[in-house]
């Protein structure tokens, strides 16, 4: 017994070191911009750069649109299929796994080839390009939004609740807004935070569609020019991920947290 728990501690400590050392090194490095003393100068430099706020604002906006579109797309579909077309469930599950098979770089490649030319010409306008970016992120988010919503709906008796609502005179829209969405609050919020955590710093799709307007490519640019600021950006970005994931943990206490596979690798 003793021996077993000794080795358990060894593995935990080893893994924790792997986890903490890079963060500690980055934090340490980010404090050394001023020679000889530790200071938060590099953080100050990050925060006074208007581009930092512009790009993070842009990426947050894109993330919020991504969340809205993916919820509006996935929730009614999963609900409808549970209610009326249960034979399509397998296909839906298969589709939701497709983003694992198509890496982000391949996805953005295909999207550029399809939508930059005739008949769409999406990349000719800002609006079109942003819409394309949101669409790409909706695809990336699809696996975990689907899973969160699907498990959320499995927990309630969709058919009986719908019948009850219908017998009270509710139509499809009312049922969705007043019955399904409230029941899926946890699923929707946790997939929203996961989307925020992965989309805000996303690099691959953003760099090919909008370049340094987005936060990921902006960080990359800073990394090429400024040594210390890149470390403080890494710490700031880690705090971001940390706070969003922490919120998910708070929401889904006890349950296994959903995780992202098709994120910003």
């Amino acid at each position: 017994m003793k021996r077993r728990s000794f080795w358990s501690w060894v593995w935990i400590v080893l893994g924790s070191l792997y986890f903490i050392l890079p963060l500690y090194s980055t934090f340490d490095f980010s404090l050394r911009e001023k020679k000889g003393v530790l200071s938060f100068l590099s953080y100050k430099n990050v925060f006074i750069d208007p581009n930092f706020w512009d790009t993070i604002g842009f990426s947050l906006e894109i993330a919020i649109f991504t969340i809205i579109v993916s919820i509006l797309l996935v929730v009614p579909t999963v609900y409808w299929i549970r209610l009326r077309l249960p034979q399509l469930r397998g296909i839906l599950e298969f589709i939701s796994m497709l983003p694992f098979v198509i890496p982000a770089i391949v996805l953005v490649f295909g999207m550029i080839r399809v939508f930059s030319g005739a008949p769409f010409f999406l990349t000719d306008t800002y609006f079109g390009t942003y819409a394309l970016l949101v669409a790409g992120y909706v695809v990336l988010a699809l696996p975990y939004v689907f899973r969160a919503v699907d498990t959320g709906l499995a927990a309630i008796d969709v058919v009986s609740l719908t019948q009850a609502a219908q017998s009270l005179g509710a139509n499809f829209g009312t049922i969705l807004i007043r019955l399904i969405f409230p029941n899926l609050k946890v699923a929707i919020l946790s997939s929203a935070f996961l989307t925020l955590a992965t989309v805000v710093g996303e690099y691959t799709i953003a760099s090919f569609l909008v370049g340094i307007k987005a936060f990921g490519p902006y960080m990359s640019l800073i990394g090429q020019n400024k040594t210390y600021e890149s470390s403080s950006l890494a710490i700031i970005s880690f705090m971001f991920t940390w706070s969003f994931m922490g919120l998910i943990q708070l929401l889904s206490r006890g349950k296994a947290a959903s995780t992202s596979l098709a994120g910003a690798r």
Binding site: S25, T26, L194, L233, A234, A264
Partner: peptide, 11 residues
């Protein structure tokens, strides 16, 4: 598992 991409490279 979600800390990847540009900031991970910096770290």
């Amino acid at each position: 598992s979600n800390f990847a991409g540009v900031p991970l490279a910096f770290a």
